[in-house]
C-alpha cells in the first residue's frame, strides 16, 4: 500500500543546517528554563525580590520565558528563511549553468 506524506515534498537542502540551529537554540532556552526551576528550588525567596517596574523576579522571569520563546522563534525563522533562500538561489545558478 502506498504510504506517502499528505502533501508532496521535495528534498530540503537546508535540513541539516536547520536541525543544527534548532538544537543550539533549544539548548540555549533550556538553560534559561533550568535556571528558573533551579532558583525556585534552591533560593525560592529570591523570587520575591522587586527587580523592575514594581514587578518581582518571579513575574519578570516567568513573562521573560514566554517573551524569549517568541524572540528565539522569530530569530530561528529568519535564519532558516535566509539559508533556504541562499541555497535555493545557488541551486538556481547551478541549473542555469
Amino acid at each position: 500500500m502506498l504510504h506517502e506524506p499528505a502533501a508532496k515534498m521535495g528534498r530540503d537542502p537546508a535540513a541539516a543546517y536547520k536541525t543544527r540551529l534548532g538544537v543550539w537554540m533549544f539548548l540555549a532556552y533550556s538553560i534559561l528554563y533550568v535556571g528558573f526551576v533551579a532558583i525556585n528550588l534552591l533560593r525560592p525567596q529570591l523570587m520575591e525580590g522587586t527587580i523592575f517596574a514594581g514587578l518581582n523576579l518571579a513575574v519578570v522571569y516567568g513573562f521573560g520565558l514566554i517573551i524569549v520563546a517568541l524572540i528565539q522563534a522569530l530569530l530561528y525563522d529568519t535564519m532558516c528563511n535566509r539559508r533556504e533562500r541562499a541555497l535555493a538561489e545557488s541551486a538556481g545558478e547551478k541549473d542555469e549553468q
Binding site: 537554540m25 533549544f26 514566554i66 522563534a73 530561528y76
Partner: peptide
Amino acid sequence: LAGWIVALFV
C-alpha cells in the same frame, strides 16, 4: 508555553 520550544526547534 516552553514546551513549544521543543516542538519548534526539535
